[in-house]
């Protein structure tokens, strides 16, 4: 019994220590403001995490938009409210699905790649050797990936939303024979720039920080073995997915909840 409690206690302490290490990594990496000479490094990383995630994001967005429009159309059609398809689609995407699904895709595509890459650099002593050459890997390797993640995910989310709304429009208008004018005017009448779009952007920035931070830290904190890299990559996807969903719940509650 004592042994069990001690085990639980030790594991909890490990978690707390992990959060502490993660915070230290984040603050140490972001401490120095990027200089002009760091821009090429950040550009390279935006390519790695943003551009390379574009295909999966655009494809998923189109499919999700189309499926949502189809469901909205059939369900709302029962009440003769097909005109509300556009509004429903836009609100659901802008407020929830856009930021959340893009963040999940980002964690799977870019997050795992960041963890694997940094983990491999650690395992092959590249980080150590950099440190011994008097170059701080937190500044040289970690920081550009963090900034690139912070920039890329909100942009990917915006692209996701636009593509998904177009995908939905193609189904609702071209396929189901809805009215294009009503589709857009319905959206424009209901969507508020701050309440719907602004809060969605805030969400995606929060997700960007969380997912990139977890990915970078898991890589940096990898146990330097091949199994270690595998475990860390899995952890990145699992932990950041759960965190994205949990934080989405909290943000939705605080931004849209009626507790004033």
């Amino acid at each position: 019994m004592i042994g069990f409690l001690r085990g639980v206690g030790n594991r909890s302490l490990d978690r707390v220590a992990g959060v502490g290490r993660a915070t230290l990594v984040l603050t140490a990496a972001l401490w120095k403001v990027p200089r002009l000479s760091d821009v090429p490094l950040i550009v390279k990383q935006i390519y790695n995490v943003g551009v390379l995630s574009l295909v999966i994001v655009v494809l998923s967005a189109f499919c999700i938009g189309a499926v949502l429009a189809l469901q909205f159309h059939t369900q709302l059609g029962k009440f003769g409210a097909q005109d509300a398809v556009g509004v429903g689609l836009a609100l659901v995407l802008l407020r929830e699905l856009g930021p959340v699904v893009t963040a999940l895709l980002f964690a799977g595509r870019a997050g795992s790649a960041i963890t694997a890459e940094i983990g491999l650099m650690k395992t092959t002593e590249q980080l150590s050797s950099m440190e011994m050459m008097g170059v701080d890997p937190l500044h040289r390797i970690v920081a550009p990936r963090l900034w690139a993640g912070f920039v890329s995910l909100p942009l990917l989310t915006a692209i996701f939303n636009v593509v998904a709304i177009y995908g939905g429009m193609i189904v609702a208008v071209e396929w189901m024979g809805g009215d294009q004018g009503r589709f857009w005017s319905g959206i424009q009448a209901e969507v508020d720039i701050w309440d719907d779009i602004g809060k969605g952007v805030v969400k995606s920035i929060a997700f960007a920080v969380v997912v990139t931070w977890i990915a970078v830290f898991q890589g940096y904190d990898t146990e330097p073995t091949p199994e270690g890299i595998g475990l860390a990559t899995t952890r990145t996807v699992v932990v950041s997915s759960v965190m994205v969903l949990a934080i989405d719940f909290l943000l939705t509650l605080s931004m849209y909840g009626d507790f004033k």
Partner: peptide, 13 residues
């Protein structure tokens, strides 16, 4: 100080 130290790692790194 490390600029004055060269190190060769086991895995070449």
């Amino acid at each position: 100080l490390r600029e004055d130290i060269g190190m060769l790692f086991q895995s070449s790194a």
